[in-house]
Amino acid sequence: MPAPKNSFKAALANDEMLYGCWAGFGDPYATEVLATAGFDWLVIDGEHAPNDLRSISAQIAVLSGKHSHPVVRLPMGEDWAIKQVLDAGAQTLLIPMVESADQARALVRAMRYPPEGIRGSGAALARASHFSTIPDYIATANAQMCLLVQVETVDGITALDEILEVEGVDGVFIGPSDLAADMGHMGDSSAPPVARVIKDALARIAASDKAAGILALDHATAQEYAGCGAQFLAVGIDVVMLAQTARATMAKWRDDG
């Protein structure tokens, strides 16, 4: 029996449009609730949310069998951290601050068993192999690994064409907030110079054999990004949605009062 099919990777390869949401609570109960909305993918965020290996593992577990595919974002692309979340059952990783083709190639290798990579062979005691009930896991896992790299600096944009040539990278995600900051427009990804770079980058990615991704909370902006070629599009952040709804509810009652 082979490793489970990565439905997200397959959908990207089929040029399907995939809508996602950030899962930032760091809690499996909240992520399970979020999955009932039917998002195609959910980012279990280990960079800016209060997640660790155990909470990431628990959220991967509650998403098992759900329509929403878990995309794990690590805070960095360290080999040991990649190994741990893959053993916990992740098949798709989103790695921030990728600025060169060499860095992308190293990430590809970290996600694969030898001879294609350097992933440690210890999945027998992990969820990834269904705790040793998938006898062919190690022999077949490499083909189901999906790597999404975040390009979110001027250096990353400069190296984008070289990154797009790296075999094993499935998608490139443009980080609008960090890119804006690096370009001198802190907190304003809609600034004309930043917007031009984002749209050009999305178009270049879409024209390659990689999938283009980005986050946009504003509906009109999200539609604009989709028109530029974004294929895996994050359209919400759970923490923000709760905060906005709670504030709006309380404001309405204060106004009515």
Rank of each mutant, 00 (worst) to 15 (best):
A206T: 03
Y19R: 03
S132M: 13
R112I: 02
F25R: 05
A248E: 15
L125I: 14
V71G: 00
P114L: 07
L42W: 02
A243D: 13
D218A: 12
D218R: 06
C21R: 01
L217D: 05
F8Y: 09
V72R: 05
M183F: 11
V240T: 13
D255Q: 14
G213A: 11
S132W: 12
E165Q: 15
D161A: 15
L12P: 00
K5Q: 13
E165T: 10
D182I: 02
A61W: 03
L148R: 02
V149T: 12
R73Q: 09
L179A: 00
P2Q: 10
A128F: 09
Y137R: 06
K66P: 04
S121D: 10
D155M: 04
K66V: 13
M241P: 00
G236I: 02
D15C: 10
G89W: 06
A251F: 08
S177T: 14
G24A: 14
V108G: 04
A30Y: 07
T92D: 01
F8A: 03
A230P: 01
Y225A: 08
L107A: 01
G122K: 01
A106I: 02
G65Q: 14
L53C: 03
A49T: 07
R127V: 04
R54Q: 13
S68W: 06
A90E: 04
I44S: 03
H219F: 10
Q59L: 03
D209M: 03
I44M: 04
G171K: 04
E165V: 10
R73D: 07
I95C: 03
A195Y: 01
A243C: 08
S129C: 04
Q244I: 10
G122L: 02
R109S: 13
Q150P: 01
Y113K: 12
A37Q: 14
D15G: 09
G213K: 09
L125Y: 10
E47A: 09
D188A: 12
L74N: 07
